[in-house]
């Protein structure tokens, strides 16, 4: 990396300082609530009712996490989630990149019509009933594919990919054509290797979408062994909250008297951590594709 030695002017110094201060403030505004959540998640739920817990747990316990991990389905649920996230992301990237590549072509007849047709769907939805009936008649309900097939494409992903493909130097494409590439090999041999940042972004979005989706697990599968982790967490959370609600509505006098260490509130904090941690761990691997100048190696190397 030559040419790095730049004389920094006064203005730039001030800018650097201001910039760093802003970043530090931003980090604090995020880290503090997260520490608060972490502290609450590591505190006895009943004790936490008393309040006063900010960044350090008072009655330290793993009971909130135990509540999550002693559930007999949790391993299986993680398996389902990992399967759908990996498979779903790969399939999405594969199919979306083909669609985006085709739609990028300036000369393809009917391209605008298809783009519009794709875009149109992002503004209207027929609601849950017809969608459910559709999944049922395709016999997707109660299979693991109900998590994957209905979310292979999304308008947003296709159009974002198309935009990035458009930015790729036309010259590279032309030289590929001269080398006798057909359109398939052009996409897979030349365009995609040059598009790692966008693949990383879209892949991240799709993966996080899969990871966070609890809805389809709740409505579209009945078998408990097909339930993904987020649905399971949601279920646990709701049943704790249902208990809280019984206590609220009838003053608790409906007759059930068991000891709890966990409340809906404390479990909620633990589920945030459980659901966020894996994605946070994955991010650094994706992040390296966003480093400035990443592309140069790809082109020159």
């Amino acid at each position: 990396m030559a040419g790095r030695i730049i004389r920094t002017s006064k203005v730039e110094w001030i800018f650097q300082i201001v910039n760093n201060v802003v970043m530090v403030l931003l980090i604090m505004s995020v880290v503090m609530p997260f520490l608060h959540i972490l502290a609450l998640s590591l505190n006895n739920g009943i004790d936490a009712i008393r309040g006063g817990i900010y960044f350090v747990p008072r009655a330290f316990t793993f009971s909130n996490y135990n509540e999550v991990f002693t559930n007999s389905n949790v391993i299986n649920a993680y398996g389902i989630t990992i399967f759908r996230t990996v498979t779903g992301t790969l399939l999405s990237l594969f199919f979306s990149s083909m669609a985006a590549f085709a739609l990028k072509s300036k000369t393809l007849p009917g391209k605008n019509g298809i783009t519009m047709m794709i875009f149109f769907t992002s503004l209207f939805s027929g609601g849950l009933i017809p969608f459910y009936i559709l999944l049922r008649s395709l016999e997707l309900l109660d299979t693991v594919w109900v998590f994957i097939i209905p979310s292979i494409y999304s308008t947003w992903n296709i159009i974002i990919m198309r935009t990035f493909f458009n930015n790729i130097d036309v010259g590279i494409e032309e030289s590929g054509k001269i080398d006798g590439c057909n359109e398939f090999s052009l996409l897979f041999r030349i365009i995609l290797p040059l598009s790692k940042p966008v693949l990383a972004v879209v892949g991240l979005f799709v993966a996080v979408g899969h990871w966070n989706d609890w809805f389809s697990g709740a409505f579209f599968v009945r078998k408990q062994n097909l339930v993904p982790i987020q649905t399971l967490l949601q279920q646990m959370l709701m049943s704790q909250e249902a208990l809280d609600r019984i206590i609220k509505e009838s003053g608790g006098a409906s007759g059930y008297i068991f000891k709890r260490q966990v409340t809906g509130e404390s479990l909620k904090m633990a589920t945030i951590i459980v659901a966020t941690a894996p994605i946070v761990c994955v991010y650094p691997f994706i992040q390296r594709y966003f480093v400035k100048g990443f592309m140069i190696g790809a082109v020159k190397g």
């Binding site: 669609a99 590549f101 794709i118 939805s125 017809p130 559709l134 296709i158 398939f184």
Partner: peptide, 26 residues
């Protein structure tokens, strides 16, 4: 561009099935 159309076929079919068919709900 026949190859490009082949690339688009799954996309169009998918959008018809999973986006337009449920739109009957409208």
């Amino acid at each position: 561009h026949w190859m490009l159309y082949i690339m688009l076929v799954p996309c169009v079919v998918w959008f018809i099935i999973f986006a337009y068919v449920p739109m009957t709900g409208l």
